[in-house]
Amino acid sequence: MATKKEFNVFMHELVPEHRVLSEKEKEELLNRYRIKISQLPQILVSDPAVVELGAKPGDVIEIKRKSPTAGVYYYYRLVVEG
């Protein structure tokens, strides 16, 4: 592994930052929008970004995106199987 560089999706400039939310943050998020967990947008566990993070189904991912209208925009997705 010393010479061979692993490809990491997050190294690419077009891939936004991803982060797994803690249980507490997850609950805060659900309270903030007054939603059930099933009302969040979803992302597959097989998504390269999720694989890289090692998140499991049921986790919520926070995606920090650059937005032409708002500067920074946070998006949240529930990890689901598939």
Binding site: Y33, I35, Q39, L40, P41, S67, T69, A70, Y73, Y76
Partner: peptide
Amino acid sequence: DGTVRDPTGIIVQFKYGEDG
């Protein structure tokens, strides 16, 4: 609350047009 949702309440955008 500024979110864009479908009729079942699933969120599509957390803020309309990302900047509301």
